[in-house]
């Protein structure tokens, strides 16, 4: 599903070039659950953003579902991730002015799905996450765990093949975090490919594979038994 070849990413500050990612080669197959780990500043989020097409590598090749992403134009990339990728953030990033229902609905609006169909899909999702009663509340009225549930529901509403999560439990307490991880596992079992960035060994253990980054380099890849 994902092929990264010789990915480099750097920023120039003055005459110095600081590398964020150095020579990353990575293959991720459909149905995998990959955890990316590493200390702060090791390039985890950068890598995730590049995979999510929110950011571009300075060098290297990226193939996503046999599309050469590094050759695509902005618009084509946007169409691609709109269709296949869902994002979950550490800070949830819900739109404060929209209700739970409307937040979940947002991606569908941008995919030009008809109103009736949207309604059914959102209702399904609310049902599945057990938040039907909260659908008319605004994000500020929810706890962190509930907000993250909404965030995940939003990421999943358009039925993506790939779910990218940047420290999804970072702002949650351990119980809430566990619930989210259990949910991820279930989703993965249902066939969604998941890539998460995490600091926690425990959360990483939910995945099938752990990728360790250090100073922008791929340090080692550990296959977990499950």
């Amino acid at each position: 599903m994902i092929q990264l070849r010789k990915i480099f990413k750097w920023v120039n500050s003055g005459s110095n070039r600081t590398f964020l990612l150095k020579d990353i080669n990575l293959d991720i197959a459909e149905g995998e659950f990959v955890s990316i780990m590493g200390p702060s500043g090791s390039g985890k989020s950068t890598l995730l953003n590049i995979i999510g097409m929110l950011d571009e590598a300075n060098e290297g090749e990226y193939n996503f579902l046999s599309e050469a992403v590094h050759k695509l134009r902005e618009k084509e990339k946007s169409a691609l991730y709109k269709q296949y990728i869902g994002f979950v953030f550490q800070a949830y990033h819900l739109i404060d002015e929209l209700t739970v229902y409307e937040n979940i609905e947002t991606p569908l609006i941008y995919q030009n799905i008809k109103s009736g169909e949207r309604k059914a899909m959102v209702a399904d999702m609310l049902d599945r996450f057990n938040i039907v009663g909260k659908k008319d509340l605004f994000p500020a009225q929810l706890s962190g765990g509930q907000q993250q549930l909404v965030g995940i529901a939003r990421a999943l509403i358009a039925k993506p093949k790939l779910l990218l999560a940047d420290e999804p439990t970072g702002n949650l307490n351990s119980k809430q975090g566990e619930e989210i991880m259990e949910l991820f596992k279930t989703l993965n079992d249902e066939g969604v490919t998941i890539i998460q960035v995490t600091h926690s060994e425990k959360n990483a253990a939910y995945g099938k594979r752990i990728i360790h980054l250090l100073d922008g380099r791929l340090e080692n890849v550990a296959q977990l038994q499950s």
């Binding site: 929110l54 618009k75 946007s78 991730y81 709109k82 994002f87 990033h93 819900l94 739109i95 947002t106 991606p107 941008y110 995919q111 939003r154 358009a158």
Partner: peptide, 9 residues
């Protein structure tokens, strides 16, 4: 940002 990530052009 959120809207763009959700697929807005």
């Amino acid at each position: 940002g959120v809207r763009k990530v959700s697929g807005a052009g």
